[in-house]
Nucleic acid binder design. Structure first.
Length: 949
RNA sequence: GCGGGGGUAGCCAAGCGGUCAAAGGUGCUAGGUUCAGGGCCUAGUCUCUUAGUGAGUUCGAGGGUUCGAAUCCCUUCCCCCGCACCA
């Protein structure tokens, strides 16, 4: 058995040695830029990464063979906190971390002493980065990836920093970067913002920032503050509800006095500049008093509401009885006690399908009797809110907002009244389970960060540009487009910088570091020039704003830039030329997990900075990879490192399995048993090609025409599949279908000359994208010139695709199958097999019926009449009358392409030897009418009758 | 909650108005093979029937459109993913 691993290593070395994947600007050739997200350097690759990279390589190799000048560069992402965290943990002697990384290192290093040395060096983040970039390089190569390695860099390199600074200055000038307040989940003890990962059971309890709106109702020396999620209902307020036994406080908040729940006052401490409790009181102490509506100035009384939770929101709620079932229920309760008799629900929302006041209607419908019937009230509330939200419109009582749809009015209301200083916000930690605690044990709060830097994906013009960019792009799979559209819509201000981590300093404010999702959006442009920067020893300070403006945006004059930076004009021109040749990115291929962040940012940032001609072309995505039905995870111990792939399976086998195992758009379940089952197919293929014998001449015969036709069909289909980013279908045609055809061909025909001379060289090329190593080896064996990786993609010759000949062979193979079946039923081997070919009139019959059914005529009499117009058919009238109903009942039995009795007989005669061999029996072929056998009458076009004896 | 994707034979997974009892793989069964080493080939694998081209019931469930539906429409149940400051 051939040593496939050795073959693979041999070719990987040759590819690198001969630098065949290092393309240069060639204006005669169309370029194709493949840019796969650079990997993050704090853990080794596993086979999940392998799925992304193997499929990328298939696309890159295909494009290269189809004549494009393909470039696929690669770099390393190191910005952010994870690498720092790793180093910190190693330094602190964290045994779990050490153990984990020791295992990682062992994947590439056998020597134990060396392993420990490397591990020790990891206290330095630089060492972690450089170590993983080296192993990544090795892994990419051992996967056979056709990468141009001249352009590698890390995102912490000085020149890269300069590039990112330029990007952010540019965005800042456009007004897309701004400063503002921002609420975050925060741990007071750690003094840090906390993400889901930093929170105990964070992934399960799903902590989030809940935003409450606070309406300020003027009262005495300040305001009574009510929390709501529906600020637009303010016009319908009749009174306030307060829990009589709840703890409340008179609080100084900045320069105002607020009357609010004590718990709320605590929450405000981390959200407002100044919060000072002046006095405390129980809810009942202000029951019966009045405040004023902040929008109408109307008198608003305060009543007892036992349903009010003092800890939630501000601990005081306002009542909108017309639209909130809870409020109406509470109102009825107090009215029963003879209080508030004069209060009537104020209707402010018009809702389709509801009477005047939806809450009143729901209250009656559910038969609610008190504010304590939580279950019914919650149901009623949900129903009313939904209806109001989707089909409600504010009515004439709502001032300048009258006539607006609820769906659209909220933001406008908020914006207006925040300006009027009667509406404010309160943030609260919300989660499926409370309290929410940091890993350190401290309870998580919401803090409002002042002076936070944002990137404003909410900007209207920018969104419009992003939409336009998306519209022009090809999205694979197309079904994901909607998700992109939605993401573009909901994205808004995103914090763009942090205080911690590696990365580029924000040029507007160097105390901040640009966060790592934001520094990786347009870096593909950097690939096009980084080799020149490095080869010419350009210094970071030479890479000024004007330099980038000139090279990447064609702004300014080279002489001016030369003067400013000292970079020779010639070099500037060269870099600009290179950028303009390679840009835009043609293909970005990555996991669909990146859709709602990275990939959408990629679109946004390109749309902002570059002119339309440099906007990205195609994004293709793939789903994740799981192993034997389970997610791969360290804790399950089922992670297969990519570094083990060559030894464990051989690379081409892995690639074939990855490409074939699942559609890109679905989750791939990696089953080792299936991979190994495929192994035999690869060996079969390899041996088939390598041991085929070549004769001198090819004798024309129909089976030869058949294999040529079939092969051309498969080339056509395989090409279509790979063009539409479907590796699975490509492999099915290029590998499995061709293999099956060749095997069948060999049964039918012993001479292999045609295969060796015409089919195999093309087949090997066809397989080169998915199995590049074996293809190179076989290409060489077959006498191909140069590398198959650089050979031209097989062309499908449509003239040689002959559906008649394929159908003819189907007659033979179907007949073979039928014979086997009957032999099996008979239970003994056949001595003589008689094949009766259907008479000519049956073919005519088929043609006529097919034609009529095609035209929508399926009436028995009509068809019969049509057939009887033909004199020759009349004598078969009785048979015809039996056949037609059968055909009509089951349209697929109509053989519209019947080739005729004569042709059928010829073909079977030609296959006589084959059948004889196959069944070791005497074969006789006869026309239906030549025989008296009853069986003979069963013959139909394309389906001869059989008699076995 | 909002948004997206999906439910196909023992399992995985294609198909997305007729050529569909439904590709391919895997599992299982039978036969063959000068086949020792996780081979290879052929056939079968919803039910019944039959010396094959026959009948019935299937593609989460229930309705509908159509001469015809796994494929289109409606209702319903179930599963997965995203909702950010985290790479």
């Amino acid at each position: 058995m051939a040593d496939l691993l050795a073959i693979e290593q041999k070719w990987q070395k040759k590819w690198l040695d001969e630098k065949i994947f290092e393309p240069n600007v060639d204006k005669k050739k169309k370029k194709y830029f493949v840019a796969i997200p650079y990997p993050y350097t704090n853990a080794p690759f596993h086979i999940g990464h392998g799925r992304t990279y193997a499929t990328s390589d298939i696309f890159a190799r295909y494009r290269r063979m189809s004549g494009l000048n393909v470039i696929w560069p690669m770099a390393y992402h190191v910005t952010g906190t994870p690498v720092l965290a790793t180093s910190a943990k190693i330094e602190s002697g964290d045994e779990d971390t050490k153990k984990l990384f020791r295992e990682y290192i062992k994947l590439h290093t056998k020597n134990d002493k060396k392993v420990e040395e490397i591990l020790k060096s990891f206290v330095n983040p630089e060492a972690v980065m450089s170590y993983f970039s080296k192993t990544f390089y090795a892994d990419f190569n051992s996967l056979g990836c056709s990468i141009d390695w001249r352009r590698q860099f890390t995102t912490n390199d000085k020149d890269y920093n300069k590039f990112i600074e330029w990007q952010f200055k540019t965005l800042h000038k456009m007004g897309y970067i701004k400063k503002g307040e921002f609420p975050v989940l925060f741990c007071q003890r750690c003094g840090n913002a906390v993400g889901v990962d930093d929170i105990k059971n964070g992934d399960q309890i799903k902590p989030e920032v809940q935003e409450w709106y606070l309406w300020k109702f003027p009262y005495e020396d300040g305001f009574i503050v009510c929390a709501t999620l529906r600020p637009e209902t303010i016009y319908g307020v009749t009174n306030l509800w307060i829990n009589p036994d709840g703890n409340y406080a008179k609080v100084q908040v900045d320069n105002e006095i607020w009357y609010i729940g004590q718990k709320a006052a605590e929450k405000l401490r981390t959200q407002k500049a100044k919060v000072f409790v002046k006095d405390v009181f129980l809810g009942k102490e202000i029951v019966g008093e009045n405040c004023k509506s902040p929008v109408t100035g109307k008198k608003i009384p305060i009543f007892v509401g036992t349903f009010v939770e003092p800890q939630a929101g501000s601990g005081i709620v306002y009542s909108v009885p017309a639209h909130a079932p809870f409020d109406y229920a509470a109102l009825k309760d107090v009215q029963r006690k003879g209080i508030a008799a004069d209060i009537e629900p104020i209707v402010i929302i018009k809702v389709e399908g509801y009477s005047e006041a939806p809450a009143v209607e729901a209250y009656n419908k559910y038969g609610i009797k008190s504010q304590n019937e939580l279950e019914k009230l919650n149901k009623a509330t949900e129903e009313v809110y939904k209806a109001e939200f989707y089909s409600g419109t504010l009515n004439e009582r709502c001032g300048k907002f009258a006539g607006k749809k609820i769906l659209e009015v909220k933001d406008a209301v908020v914006e207006h009244f925040v300006k009027e200083k009667v509406l404010d916000k309160l943030y609260e930690v919300n989660a499926l389970e409370k309290p929410v605690k940091c890993r350190c044990g401290e309870e998580v709060t919401v803090s409002v960060l002042k002076d936070q830097w944002f990137i404003d994906y909410g900007n209207k013009e920018w969104k419009e540009k992003a939409r336009k960019c998306l519209r022009q792009m090809e999205i694979v799979p197309e079904s994901s487009r909607k998700l992109f559209e939605d993401t573009i819509e909901w994205l808004h201000e995103k914090p763009v910088a942090r205080k911690r981590g590696l990365g580029t300093k924000l040029p507007m404010d160097p105390s901040w570091i640009i966060e790592s999702l934001s520094d990786s959006t347009i870096y593909m442009a950097f690939y096009t020039v980084v080799n020149h920067i490095r080869n010419n020893g350009l210094k970071p300070e030479q890479l000024t704003e004007n330099f980038w403006n000139y090279v990447l945006l064609s702004k300014g004059k080279e002489t001016d830039v030369e003067k400013e930076t000292g970079i020779p004009k010639k070099l500037l021109l060269k870099m600009k030329e290179e950028f303009e040749y390679w840009y835009p990115v043609d293909l970005r291929h990555t996991g669909n997990a990146h859709l709602s962040n990275h990939l959408t940012f990629y679109i946004f940032n390109h749309a902002a900075i570059f002119p339309e001609k440099h906007w990205p072309r195609t994004i293709s995505m793939l789903d994740m990879l799981i192993k034997d039905g389970k997610k791969m995870s360290k804790s399950l111990g089922n992670v297969i490192p990519l570094a083990e792939v060559p030894q464990r399976y051989t690379t081409d086998l892995f690639r074939l399995y990855i490409a074939y195992g699942a559609d890109l758009s679905s989750v791939m379940d990696f089953k080792e048993a299936d991979v190994l089952a495929l192994k035999s197919k690869i060996h079969q293929f390899f041996n088939l090609v390598i041991s085929a014998k070549k004769g001198k001449t090819v004798k024309p015969c129909s089976i030869n025409k058949w294999i040529v036709s079939r092969f051309n069909t498969n080339v056509l289909e395989a090409t279509k599949a790979i063009e539409s980013y479907n590796p699975r279908l490509y492999v099915q045609h290029a590998f499995f279908n061709v293999l099956n055809d060749v095997l069948y061909y060999q049964r039918r025909h012993t001479d292999e000359t045609l295969l060796v001379k015409e089919i195999f060289p093309e087949w090997v090329k066809l397989l080169a994208p998915v199995m590049p190593h074996l293809s190179e080896e076989l290409w060489e064996h077959l006498g191909g010139k140069g590398f198959v990786s650089l050979a031209s993609w097989p062309k499908s010759d449509k003239k040689r695709i002959d559906s008649t000949i394929e159908a003819s062979e189907e007659l033979v193979s179907n007949t073979t199958a039928d014979i086997s079946e009957i032999i099996k039923l008979v239970g003994h081997a056949a001595q003589k097999i008689t094949i009766f070919v259907a008479d000519e009139w049956k073919s005519k019959l088929m043609a006529v019926v097919a034609d009529m059914v095609e035209k929508g005529k399926r009436d028995f009499r009509e068809i019969m009449t049509e057939l009887m117009k033909d004199e020759a058919m009349k004598k078969h009238a009785e048979d015809i009358a039996k056949i037609i109903p059968r055909l009509l009942r089951d349209v697929k039995k109509i053989n519209a392409n019947a080739m005729g009795a004569k042709k059928e007989k010829e073909l079977l005669e030609e296959a006589k030897e084959f059948l004889k061999e196959e069944f070791k029996a005497k074969i006789e072929i006869a026309a239906e009418h030549e025989s008296r056998e009853q069986k003979a009458r069963q013959a139909m076009p394309g389906k001869p009758a059989l008699l076995i004896s």
